[in-house]
Amino acid sequence: MIYLDGSALMRFLPGVRYYDEWVAWALPRLPEFVTTQLGLTELRQAAELYPRETKSQAFEIVEQVKARVPTIRFSDANVSVSTHAAAVLKPFAALHIGAAVTHPDVDTVATYDSELARVAILYQLKVVTPGMPDGWQNDIARPQASV
């Protein structure tokens, strides 16, 4: 199964970068996806930013995604992994990685978050990001430590 974080779910919204690549890749794989309520909340927040004239279309897409992508619950094991991951990830990303790592059927994470992608790889999960080149998460400039 493939876990979708909020940055991947947002690609279902027209006008978002990599929308075409995402939709072409994702639509045939819908039965393979899972997410959490957190991912759906992030998708709703992105839809809220759409202009008034296209907001209803964006929220229609949110409802379609909600109906087609099963949600998994956060467990104690998930929170335990998330707590450790929070040392290197932002809180929402840590929750996403915890959900992906602890779900027994998830072997892949779809994300456009470079830090989450790197941590997913450390947990031996595959990372997919349609539209981005292989290894993109390692090409992001990392801040230099100050001396």
Rank of each mutant, 00 (worst) to 15 (best):
H103Q: 04
T129C: 13
K126Y: 09
L95Y: 07
A77Q: 11
A120E: 01
V127L: 01
F33R: 02
V79N: 07
N78D: 13
D139C: 04
P104W: 07
Q64R: 14
H84N: 07
L40Y: 07
D105Y: 08
A100D: 00
R52I: 09
Q64N: 13
E63Y: 11
L27F: 09
Q57R: 14
L43V: 10
A94T: 06
E53P: 04
T41G: 05
V69M: 02
V127M: 07
T41D: 05
V62D: 00
P143G: 04
Q137W: 15
S56R: 11
V128T: 07
E32G: 03
L27I: 06
G98Y: 10
T83R: 15
A120Q: 08
N78G: 14
F33S: 03
H84S: 11
N78W: 10
T54E: 13
V34C: 03
A85G: 07
A67W: 05
P133N: 03
Q64C: 08
S80E: 15
I61V: 15
V106D: 00
G135M: 09
M132P: 02
D107C: 08
P130F: 05
E32P: 01
A93Y: 02
L122C: 02
A47Q: 05
P70V: 05
N78A: 12
V106F: 01
G39Y: 02
L116V: 09
T102M: 06
D105E: 14
V65R: 01
V79A: 15
G135P: 00
I61F: 11
D134G: 06
